[in-house]
């Protein structure tokens, strides 16, 4: 016959151990956090406005514009990020939260690895080298981050061009970049766009 005192001791020990283990588990566990990626395209002045150093969004041939992207990673681990840039016009289909702007040809991309809880800056320096008139539309010969690009989308009178910027994240499972960032079982696209006229 086990003495009553021993049984009480075992029960008390077990109860206290469960309470202390729960405290240990709570202390060791990572606090739950909403995963997200945030980003913006910044003007030379470091603001989210005044991209063309004037009230009008007019860009003359040869004028160089130095913008930069600031991308913040809050996904809980390091991410391999790619920014895809496209040039569209007023009638181009815009990328949205679920669909990328694949219908508009890509001008280029920039990639970077960003650790969790850090913000990376990426330069986007561009200029219009020349304007090509064809079929009533103006096409642009551009220099983006030192690379020459001839756009395949034109605009009437060179007015109302649009830069589309898209955030793509490397997905280990598919071994490729995927549009937007993953939230549970879906992906969230966060496209940006900047309008301008070429003169």
């Amino acid at each position: 016959m086990v003495p009553r005192r021993v049984i009480v001791f075992i029960l008390l020990s077990a109860s206290f151990s469960v309470v202390y283990s729960s405290i240990a588990y709570y202390t060791l566990s990572k606090p739950p956090a909403q995963e997200f990626m945030a980003w913006g395209v910044f003007s030379p002045g470091g603001s989210l406005s005044n991209y063309f150093s004037g009230s009008e969004a007019n860009v003359t041939v040869g004028k160089s514009l130095s913008w930069h992207f600031a991308v913040t990673n809050r996904m809980g681990s390091i991410q391999y990020v790619q920014i895809v840039y496209r040039l569209g016009n007023s009638t181009s289909a815009s990328p949205n939260a679920t669909v990328s702007g694949d219908a508009v040809p890509q001008l280029g991309n920039s990639s970077i690895f960003i650790p969790n809880a850090q913000t990376a800056l990426m330069n986007f320096t561009w200029s219009i080298a020349s304007r090509i008139s064809r079929g009533g539309l103006i096409f642009l010969n551009m220099a983006i981050n030192g690379k020459q690009v001839i756009t395949s989308v034109g605009a009437v009178g060179g007015q109302r061009f649009r830069f589309f910027f898209e955030l793509w994240i490397f997905d280990v499972a598919s071994n490729s970049f995927q549009y937007g960032y993953k939230v549970q079982n879906s992906r969230v696209g966060v496209p940006l766009q900047v309008w301008f006229n070429s003169l």
């Binding site: 001791f9 008390l12 020990s13 206290f16 151990s17 469960v18 283990s21 240990a24 202390t27």
Partner: peptide, 22 residues
């Protein structure tokens, strides 16, 4: 190591607390 230490300490503290009460 951290998890092992924390849970071992919890069990030891549980014993200690039971002993203290009794």
């Amino acid at each position: 190591f951290d998890q092992g230490s924390a849970y071992s300490l919890s069990v030891v503290a549980g014993f200690g607390s039971a002993l203290l009460v009794l």
